[in-house]
Design a binder for these strands. Structure first.
Lengths: 365, 365
DNA sequence: CAGACTTGCGCAATCGTTTGTGCTGCGGAT
DNA sequence: ATCCGCAGCACAAACGATTGCGCAAGTCTG
C-alpha cells in the first residue's frame, strides 16, 4: 500500500517535530551539520562541501564559504566521526600491537608512531599481547571490528592474514603482505666491531640474545659477517647466550659469569643489549676486572640507563622513535595505496653509535 | 510532488540492484546485518535483537536465536562500529593524554589503563602533549571529535572544562568535575623517613622536585609533616631543588653538588625521584663519599634502573600500573554514572617501599 | 534575442544499526 | 462462535554526514 497524501503530510510533520528537539550529540557538545545548515539557511550539501574543502570543485561562492566557516566556528561545529566513517568507510585510525607497552622499547616506537600519525589526523589504538597466544589471535580481530585501516605490529609476529595493510617493526618473520621496518644490523655490527678493532681488540667475546627474541638471529648473522670481513676470529668458547625471560640485567650477569668460568682470555665483550651489558659489567667487577681497562664492553639499544651507569656505556643506538615514525608513514602510504608492497619488503633503519666510557684501547699486558 | 506508483516501482528496483552488489565494508571483511537477515529470511530487527542479547525481552524463539547465531558465525558477521556508534551514541572509547609516552611513567600507567579498559571492551586513544600549550588545548577537542566517552589525563593539567568525565592521574590541580588518582604521599614520606630514622639518621638532606612538576608540592608537604611527627628537624641549608627540564640524572647531580658545597654535614639524602638519586650517587662518589657507608640515599618511583645501579637503590615504589587501572575503572564508573563525583574527589594509592643497598645504619664517626 | 555555458547551490539516496510501535496468527476462556 | 492475550516477528524512522545529479538564474556568444 502506498501512503496517500494525507498520511505523508502527517508523517512529515511528525518528522519535523522530532528534528526540532535539541539532539543530544555524542560527546555532548556542538551542533550537527543539519543545525548548522538551518542556521545558515543553506542546504546540508553546501555546508558539507565547504567543510570538506571541496568548495572549489563545486563552485561555492567565496562569500558563502566565509559565512559557513564563521558559523561553524561560532556554533562550535564538529563533524560526527561515526557518521563520517559510516559514509566514507574510512576511520583514520590504525591499530598498534605491542608485546608490552610499559617496556621502553615499545613506548619509544609508539612515540614515533604517534607523531607521524597525528600529523595526518590519524589516531591509533594500542593493545599489548604480553606474549599470550590467545590475545595475539584475538586482538587483530578486535582492532578490525573497530575499523582500523591498518595495523602496526611492534616486535610481534601476527598469526593469521589480515585484510588491511600491515607494517611490522622488527620481530616479524618476512612474510607476504607485511612490510618490515628493521634495524640495519650489518651497519650496527660494523660500528661495534670496527670500534673495538680500531682499539686493538682481537679476542672478543659475545653475548647473544635469547632464542625467542626475533632480533637475535639477524644480529648474530651480521656479527659473523662483519667479523669475517675484519678478520676477527670468533672463538666458540667466547660465545654465550642470554637465557630466560627475566628482564633487566640478570641474564647478562649470568652469561658473563659463565664466560669467565671458561678461563679463556678476552679483552672485550659485545652484548646483545644494554641491560645485559650492565649485568656483564657487574660480573666483571666482581671478578676483579676493571671496565674498560681490563675489558671493554659494548652494549646495544642505548637505553636511558646506559648513560647513567658507571662507566657510561658505549653502545649502538637504535633509533626507535625514527623506526616508529617510518612505520607509521609507510603504513599511511600503504593505506592510501601510494605505494604497493612488492618492490620493497623491508626498510632498513641506520643505527647510531655512541662512544662513552666502557671501551678503551686494549691494554698491553 | 509526490512520486506516483510507476516511479516508486522503478526506484525500488534500482535500490534492490544496488543492494545486491557486494558492499565493500570497512575493514574489507564480513557481511552486513542486512545480508545476514536476507540470508536467514528474517528482518533486520530480529537479527539485531538476537545479536544484542535482547532476545528475551522481545521474545525471539529459541530456535530462531540459534539459527541467527550460527549464521552470524558462519558468515563472519561483525557489527559495523560506525553505524552502531552513530545510532547508540556510544563509542566505547576513551582518550588518554600524557606528557610523553616514551617516558617510563606514562607507559606504566598506560599499561594499567589498558588492562582495565580492554576488560570492558573499551579502547583508548593516546596523545602526548610534550608540554606544548597549543597541543594541550587542541587534543581534548580532537579526542572529543573522535567521540571519546571520557578522558584520562596523566600527569597533565587540562586547560578548559570538558563535556565528558575526566579522571586525572597525578598532576591535576584539584578541580570541579575531575576525579584525581594520586599517590598517598603521606605514607610514602613515612616509609622513607622512618626507614632512615630507624637507621639512626637525623641530619637528612632533601632534593625537592622541579617547581613545574605537580607532585613536588604535595610530596614536600607530606615530608614536612612526617619530619615533624618524627621529630626530625629540616635544616633549610640541607634542602635543594631540581632545576631545569633535562630528563635523566643530571639535575640530581647538580643539586647534590650544590648541597655538598654548603659544607653542612648530613648522613642521608631523600631524593625527589630515582633519576635524581642516581645523579646524587654519582656526585657523592665524585666527592669521595661512599654510598651507603657515608651517606644513605633514598629514591622515589622505582624505575627499572633503580635495581641495576650500584649500589642498588632503596626507594619508594609508585604502583603506576595500579594507578592506571584505578583511573580507568573509575572513569568507566563515571561514564556509566554508577558513581557521581561529589563524594569522592580523589583516590589515594598506597605506595610500596623497596629496601636495597643504598641505605645503611648511620656510621659512628 | 535565442541558445549555450557557467555559476551556485539543493535533492535525495545511502552508509549499517538500533528501537518504538505495530501487526498477525493461534490457543484458551467465556 | 466471539473475544482476549500473547508469542513472534516486521515496519520504518532515526543517527549525521557524503555525493552523484540536477536545476534555476545569470553571462556570454553570434
Amino acid at each position: 500500500m502506498l501512503p496517500n497524501k494525507e498520511e505523508l503530510k502527517i508523517r512529515s510533520e511528525k518528522t519535523k517535530l522530532r528534528r526540532a528537539r535539541p539532539a543530544k550529540q555524542v560527546g555532548g557538545h556542538g551542533v550537527s551539520l543539519r543545525e548548522l545548515a538551518a542556521h545558515l539557511g543553506l542546504s546540508l550539501t553546501t555546508v558539507s562541501r565547504v567543510m570538506n574543502h571541496a568548495a572549489k570543485e563545486y563552485r561555492i561562492a567565496p562569500a558563502t564559504q566565509q559565512r559557513v566557516l564563521e558559523a561553524a566556528a561560532s556554533l562550535n561545529y564538529h563533524p560526527n566521526a561515526f557518521a563520517r566513517g559510516l559514509r566514507k568507510k574510512r576511520s583514520s585510525t590504525v591499530g598498534v600491537i605491542v608485546p608490552e607497552i610499559s617496556e621502553g622499547y615499545a613506548a619509544s616506537v609508539l612515540s614515533g608512531i604517534e607523531d607521524a600519525l597525528l600529523q595526518e589526523k590519524f589516531f591509533y589504538f594500542v593493545v599489548s599481547h604480553r606474549h599470550r597466544a590467545d590475545l595475539l589471535d584475538e586482538y587483530p580481530r578486535l582492532l578490525l571490528s573497530r575499523a582500523v585501516e591498518g595495523i602496526i605490529a611492534v616486535d610481534t609476529r601476527l598469526l593469521g592474514p589480515v585484510p588491511v595493510p600491515v607494517v611490522a617493526v622488527s620481530g616479524h618473520r618476512r612474510k607476504n603482505g607485511v612490510l618490515t621496518i628493521e634495524l640495519d644490523h650489518l651497519t650496527a655490527a660494523r660500528y661495534a666491531l670496527s670500534h673495538l678493532f680500531d682499539l686493538g681488540h682481537r679476542k672478543i667475546a659475545f653475548i647473544k640474545g635469547q632464542t625467542f627474541s626475533s632480533d637475535t638471529r639477524s644480529r648474530w648473522d651480521a656479527t659473523v659477517k662483519v667479523c669475517d670481513s675484519l678478520g676477527i676470529r670468533i672463538d666458540p668458547q667466547l660465545v654465550t647466550q642470554l637465557e630466560g625471560i627475566a628482564p633487566g640485567s640478570e641474564p647478562g650477569y649470568v652469561a658473563t659469569r659463565e664466560l669467565l668460568q671458561r678461563e679463556r682470555r678476552f679483552s672485550a665483550i659485545v652484548c646483545f643489549n644494554d641491560a645485559s651489558a650492565i649485568g656483564a659489567i657487574t660480573a666483571l667487577h666482581e671478578a676483579g676486572l676493571v671496565v674498560p681497562h681490563d675489558v671493554s664492553v659494548v652494549g646495544f639499544d642505548d637505553i636511558p640507563a646506559a648513560a647513567t651507569i658507571r662507566p657510561a656505556l658505549t653502545t649502538v643506538r637504535q633509533p626507535l622513535y625514527e623506526m616508529g615514525r617510518t612505520a607509521a608513514m609507510s603504513l599511511l602510504s600503504l593505506i592510501r595505496e601510494e605505494i604497493s608492497l612488492s618492490p620493497l619488503r623491508s626498510i632498513l633503519i641506520t643505527p647510531d653509535f655512541v662512544t662513552r666510557q666502557s671501551t678503551a684501547i686494549v691494554s698491553k699486558d
